[in-house]
Amino acid sequence: ELREAFAKVDTDGNGYISFNELNDLFKAACLPLPGYRVREITENLMATGDLDQDGRISFDEFIKIFHGLKSTDVAKTFRKAINK
């Protein structure tokens, strides 16, 4: 299930999730959020999830993000976006 969610976000299939891919995910989900809020959520996920600070999120980092977000608003938003 997590591998499928990761693949859905990794639209270019390079094995990593970029800032733009995350941002595009939230935009495509048509969530009722202003653009600046989408950017804040994306920046927050990148800042906390990109553990090796290479500017992208690997599958291992994605798993840690996903499990670390349990019930936060960001987690709910992220799950809604993935499930669209």
Rank of each mutant, 00 (worst) to 15 (best):
E1A: 15
L2C: 02
L2G: 01
L2D: 02
L2Q: 03
R3P: 01
A5L: 14
F6W: 12
F6Y: 01
A7R: 07
K8S: 10
V9Y: 09
V9W: 03
V9E: 01
D10A: 02
D10Q: 01
D10V: 01
T11P: 05
T11K: 13
D12S: 08
D12I: 03
G13I: 00
G13K: 05
G13D: 07
G13W: 00
G13T: 02
G13Q: 06
N14P: 00
N14L: 05
N14E: 04
Y16G: 01
Y16F: 06
Y16Q: 03
Y16K: 04
I17M: 01
I17S: 00
S18Y: 04
F19W: 08
N20L: 06
N20S: 12
E21M: 05
E21S: 05
E21D: 08
E21V: 02
E21A: 05
L22R: 00
N23W: 06
N23R: 08
D24Y: 04
D24P: 01
D24Q: 08
D24T: 08
D24E: 13
L25C: 05
L25Q: 00
L25W: 04
L25S: 01
F26Q: 01
F26N: 01
F26E: 00
F26Y: 02
F26D: 01
K27R: 10
K27T: 12
A28Y: 12
A28P: 01
A29F: 06
A29K: 05
A29Q: 08
C30Q: 15
C30P: 07
C30S: 14
C30V: 04
C30H: 14
L31G: 09
L31K: 10
P32N: 14
P32K: 11
P32F: 03
P32H: 10
L33Y: 13
L33G: 04
P34A: 06
P34Y: 02
P34C: 04
P34M: 04
G35W: 07
G35L: 12
G35T: 13
Y36M: 12
Y36W: 14
R37D: 12
V38H: 04
V38E: 05
V38D: 02
R39L: 05
E40H: 02
E40Y: 03
E40Q: 11
I41C: 03
I41W: 03
T42W: 11
T42V: 14
T42H: 07
T42M: 12
E43L: 03
E43C: 03
N44L: 09
N44Y: 10
N44I: 07
M46T: 13
M46H: 08
M46S: 13
A47Q: 13
T48S: 14
T48F: 08
G49T: 08
G49M: 08
D50Q: 13
D50F: 05
D50Y: 03
D50L: 05
D50K: 15
L51W: 08
L51D: 06
D52M: 12
D52S: 13
D52N: 13
D52F: 05
Q53V: 09
Q53P: 13
D54Q: 10
D54W: 05
D54L: 06
D54C: 09
G55I: 04
G55V: 05
G55T: 07
G55Y: 13
R56G: 04
R56Y: 11
I57S: 00
I57G: 00
I57V: 07
I57W: 02
S58C: 04
S58G: 05
S58W: 01
S58D: 04
S58T: 14
F59E: 09
D60Q: 10
E61N: 10
E61S: 09
E61K: 06
F62S: 02
F62D: 00
I63P: 00
I63V: 15
I63N: 12
K64M: 03
K64F: 01
K64N: 08
K64P: 01
F66C: 13
F66Y: 15
F66P: 00
H67I: 06
H67S: 12
H67A: 10
H67L: 04
G68F: 09
G68Y: 11
G68A: 15
G68Q: 15
G68M: 15
L69D: 08
K70I: 09
S71K: 09
S71E: 14
S71R: 10
S71M: 11
T72E: 13
D73H: 11
D73V: 08
D73G: 11
D73F: 07
D73M: 10
V74N: 13
V74M: 12
V74H: 13
A75I: 07
A75M: 10
A75Q: 13
K76S: 12
K76W: 05
K76L: 09
T77Q: 11
T77V: 09
T77D: 14
F78W: 12
F78M: 13
R79G: 15
K80D: 10
K80G: 15
K80A: 11
A81N: 15
A81F: 05
A81K: 15
A81V: 12
I82F: 08
N83A: 11
N83H: 12
N83T: 14
N83G: 14
N83D: 13
K84E: 15
K84R: 13
K84M: 14
